[in-house]
Design a binder for these strands. Structure first.
Lengths: 237, 237
DNA sequence: CGCTACCGTCACAGCACTGTCACGGAACGC
DNA sequence: GCGTTCCGTGACAGTGCTGTGACGGTAGCG
């Protein structure tokens, strides 16, 4: 299956002819395409295997596009998923509301194929469209989301569930500082309430777990700001 | 100046009436707006103080919008800068090419203000809910807000939290003199009360932190006025 | 049921950082 | 020149932030 590495686009649209047209053009452009006409089914499929980009129709039978969009934006896992809304020209007002709800872009029917593809490319380029399944690594550490395994310098590490998610999150955004609030939202979930200092404790447990004797600390503390996955270089050559 | 911390939008457009309209609406939305009709000038201004978002007209006198866009995309510092292109309806084909060149979105004239603002919000939200992501640099110093790192001449500097915010503020408005009150409002916050002289002390700490031996002082004292991030040349050329 | 692994919270200590002051020197006006 | 205003500098006490160990609670499992 060579197309497992292609960018994966999910079309949520119930007009069959339009789907056929889109599928044809997008596959010609080298995308892997799946589709569904049902909002609920879309939600489960996205949960199972999040696409790199979502083409979302405004009018849907079971669940409206905007509602689906809202639900996706509530989940940490799909918060950054690029979404393009498809609307009829007359519904442009709603489309504007759609953007504020969380869609990244919209396009009005009828549209030219080139315009759509250009927008898709722009969005994918921006979101760095790297397939999500790859192993994550930084410095001498490696995390495999599929097998749920973490390795540093050849030796396997044992992490608790939260430590694992924490490390995975940091590995996805290396060298970037996150406040305790950011970390809570991303790792614990948007509407869970825990004390910000809890992050400190788990950072400590993570450090203890991944830092063997004589190994450098990969987690950098930035006072009054948060934490980052980064080498704590005091000086540079 | 209460708007120094607002998201900063640069408009590159030579039709004065349109600029006036845009400026009015965007400022009402809480953005700080600057504009220029010249592509070359835009480039220098972006280099000096990168905006959070760029509104870019396709037709420009000296340098075409698409050329400006291409140049910006070539530089690492502005590669992620969100760009919205403004084009006339008839030029839609070009706009598509514009997207492939590196613009993030385009909108065809005439457009509704709400549609534009919605797109702006979507872009700013996507580029990190905190609208500050681009690296800032001046002379031989570089500050990365994302990784919270400051580098001068290849060596990493260690700054305290306040020193960091202070430097970041000055880097966003280089070569501009700010009174102690301005600095307090922007860096400490509008309703925090501290003695104006406190700024002096932190300026000193900042100087000590960033000025290595044999390096020029980047912070210029303007007697009876305040401070500026600028090379201290004894006399004007 | 008891055991284990893990989680969230807290208290406390150490230390980096902060705001303020006093002093002396520099810059300026006359 | 002198007086005044302004700024650089070092010191210092108070504050706030983080690392750390400990503790009670819970879910899963045999």
């Amino acid at each position: 299956m060579s197309d497992l590495n292609k960018p994966y686009i999910l079309i949520v649209e119930d007009e069959a002819p339009l789907v056929t047209l889109l599928r044809y053009n997008l596959e010609k452009q080298g995308f892997r395409v799946e589709d569904t006409g049902d909002g609920g089914e879309a939600l489960t499929r996205i949960t199972e295997a999040p696409p790199d980009l979502l083409l979302l129709d405004w009018m849907l039978p079971t669940m409206s596009g905007i509602e689906l969009c809202r639900q996706l934006r509530r989940r940490p896992a799909t918060r950054a998923l690029p979404i393009i809304m498809l609307t009829a020209r007359a519904e442009e007002q709603d489309a504007v509301r759609g953007l504020d709800t969380g869609a990244d872009d919209y396009i009005t029917k009828p549209f030219s194929t080139e315009a759509l593809i250009a927008r898709i490319r722009a969005l994918l380029r921006r979101s760095g469209s790297v397939p999500q399944k790859l192993k994550l690594n930084f410095h001498d550490i490696s995390l495999d989301p599929a097998s749920h395994r973490v390795i540093r310098n050849g030796r396997a590490l044992h992490l608790g569930p939260t430590e694992f998610r924490l490390l995975e999150f940091f590995l996805r955004h290396p060298k970037r500082v996150f406040s305790r609030e950011d970390v809570l939202n991303a790792v614990w979930g948007r509407d869970i309430h825990v004390e910000p200092r809890t992050v400190d404790v788990h950072i400590r447990r993570l450090r203890k777990a991944i830092n063997g004797p004589g190994e450098v600390d990969i987690v950098r503390t930035v006072r009054a700001a948060g934490y980052a996955l980064d080498l704590d270089l005091g000086e540079v050559a």
